[in-house]
């Protein structure tokens, strides 16, 4: 990028963060404002350091939920960065993204979307179409579209993000399961229940295989146990959970917030189909893992 944050700004930033984390905004804000004033006096308004300082102050406002004030500062910082660093600089993309986040927090999804799209274009141009940062930007864009109920677009963006994460970070990266979960939510919104179900099962199978090895007759992910229990309901007499389900205890040990969410979501889908035994099996497992 050619620009490096000067040491004194870094020190100031750390100080400001410290005050802000203690809730001492009455100290943090004037500190930023004084620094801004000094910087503008020595370097002029259109200087990268001023933009950085504006970003620091915007963070303090964001932490106070003063999104409007924060957005105002970021707009200013954006203009400076475009002028001093060029329109396609990663710093411009980052500022556009954060501006979109602030608009999003105020429910201004329509205004946020074009900013997010511009950030995406810059990142694609600078980093290439298959960089994880591009995937992250696609995620934010999907979320903004989701809030506007534009599900076809949401689906498209999540699919692209998933493709990037899978190819660049590998199938077991947490981002893959997270994005699959988000994509499944989008399927649900469109009434594509079968597609959602397939994705949820895929997440659970992968998580299981990662921890316990390939799936076979003696090593099944939780959803297979759930469906077997559903199919054999009434036929089987009560037995202890461990003997009844073979590797059930293993299936239950798969543990992460994403997997837990997936268990609950798939359980809701089972319930919708009247597969109550299967639903309960997953719920018990979700209950245990949290």
């Amino acid at each position: 990028g050619g620009y490096e944050i000067p040491a004194r700004l870094r020190t100031l930033h750390n100080l400001v963060i410290q005050y802000a984390s203690q809730g001492r905004y009455e100290v943090a804000v004037p500190l930023c404002k004084q620094a801004l004033e000094d910087l503008e006096k020595t370097s002029g308004h259109d200087h990268p350091d001023v933009a950085t300082m504006l970003n620091i102050l915007a963070l303090v406002y964001r932490d106070q939920n003063k999104y409007k004030e924060a957005a105002h500062l970021l707009n200013d910082a954006l203009a400076i960065r475009e002028k001093t660093l060029g329109k396609d600089h990663p710093a411009v993309a980052a500022t556009l993204n954060n501006l979109a986040v602030l608009y999003g927090k105020r429910g201004k999804y329509k205004e946020a979307e074009p900013l997010c799209k511009r950030a995406l274009e810059i990142r694609e141009k600078v980093l290439g179409k298959y960089h994880p940062d591009v995937a992250k930007q696609l995620n934010n864009l999907a979320l903004l579209c989701q809030n506007q109920a534009k599900y076809a677009e949401v689906e498209y963006y999540y699919r692209r993000a998933l493709e990037i994460y899978q190819s660049k970070l590998g199938a077991d990266d947490p981002n893959v399961a997270k994005t699959k979960n988000n994509l499944a939510t989008c399927y649900l919104k469109q009434g594509k229940f079968k597609d959602a179900e397939t994705l949820y099962k895929d997440i659970l199978t992968r998580a299981h295989e990662r921890d316990f090895g390939s799936v076979n007759n003696d090593n099944k992910p939780i959803w297979m146990h759930a469906e077997e229990r559903e199919e054999s309901k009434g036929k089987q007499k009560e037995a202890g959970p461990y003997t009844e389900y073979g590797s059930w205890y293993k299936a239950c040990k798969v543990d992460s917030p994403t997997v837990n969410t997936t268990l609950k979501s798939l359980s809701a889908l089972y319930r919708r189909q009247g597969k109550l035994e299967a639903a309960e099996t997953l719920e018990e497992c979700a209950g245990k893992s949290r």
Binding site: N55, P90, A94, K105, N182, S265
Partner: peptide
Amino acid sequence: DQQGASRQQQLEWDDSTLTY
């Protein structure tokens, strides 16, 4: 329920904005 997943999703801030 099904809302669980979407409730988790949040727009992500880019912290690199201070490192340029």
